[in-house]
Design a protein around this nucleic acid. Structure first.
Lengths: 168, 168
DNA sequence: GAATGGAATGTTATATCGTAACATTCCTCA
DNA sequence: TGAGGAATGTTACGATATAACATTCCATTC
């Protein structure tokens, strides 16, 4: 699959603090449900709950925090439950692992390719996923003779919003 | 510091399986010693041992494997010892953390900038560090409005050597 | 509407990775 | 030669992740 023609690469792709996040989460769950049906795989209750926990915000969440959410209503799930759900969700492109934080983030376009990059705000924790064609091209050409299978590109810094509010 | 003018970006930068690795390790330790002296910081025995363990190969090594090496001769060091040494070695640019593997790799040019990328061979575990100017430029331009502070770029795949020998 | 077989989940235990907190020792320098 | 910061020793614990096996669920087939 060719790289997306971006537009995601804009700074505006950074989720605004005041955006309608409930809609984000609802949409993500609906997309996942639809794609699972289309793919003939099961979007079970546990998988739904884990994905919902991940979409609580645009900041990465750890597996054990997800577990705490699962067990909040009295259940006594073991960590395996979460990790198995995460494996499924990653395999289907619904979530990404943020390697630099050992945590997980929802993907807003699980039906597209995942040659993407992550911008991680050190201040608010928000992560933006972008798919910059120039970066993809540069990476593809950076390693002649090396057969690329997967990429981890995570950029830490301060997001536009936090930068604007740091005149303290 | 501006990005290096590469040359590191060539596939040849991948360590050959039959290279003189003893020299790699010896050189790395000598460089570290020299730089520590120049910087007025202490290159202690523990730090030397940890760096030596990391330079046993060009594959990332986990903190507890390093610890096992430290304790091989009967010592009973605690994990903290290793993590503290790693913190020092990272701060001085002698080692890098490979986030996607929770492991550590030696740096062959600790006196230069570290706007680099890692190629990780899935088959032999070898990691090559490159500093591709096009990648750096693309990353710098990928996130307008985002104040970049650090980058994690790790590319997994199959190295040239393993690819050549997979006609089985 | 059973039988069946693979997918999903339950459960226990353990491996692996990383740090907090405080005591002690070491080294440099005035 | 003491004073003070750097480094290490030590104990304890927190955080992340998986192995292995038992059980349950569910779509399909007969």
């Amino acid at each position: 699959m060719p790289p997306r023609k971006t537009g995601h690469a804009k700074a505006q792709s950074f989720p605004a603090p005041n955006h309608d996040h409930a809609a984000c989460a609802t949409d993500a769950l609906a997309r996942a449900e639809r794609l699972c049906r289309a793919r003939g795989v099961r979007f079970t209750e546990i998988r739904r709950c884990v994905l919902k926990a991940i979409w609580q915000s645009h900041a990465p969440i750890g597996a054990y925090d997800i577990l705490a959410g699962l067990n909040a209503k009295g259940a006594r799930h073991a960590p395996m439950v979460v990790y198995r759900a995460l494996e499924f969700l990653q395999a289907n492109g619904f979530v990404h692992r943020v390697a630099s934080q050992n945590a997980f983030i929802g993907c807003a376009h699980p039906d597209e390719g995942h040659d993407s990059q992550f911008l991680i705000c050190r201040k608010c924790g928000t992560v933006a996923e972008i798919a910059n064609a120039a970066v993809s091209t540069a990476l593809a050409n950076a390693a002649p003779g090396f057969a690329v299978e997967s990429r981890t590109v995570e950029i830490s810094g301060v997001c536009p919003h936090c930068k604007d509010h740091s005149h303290a």
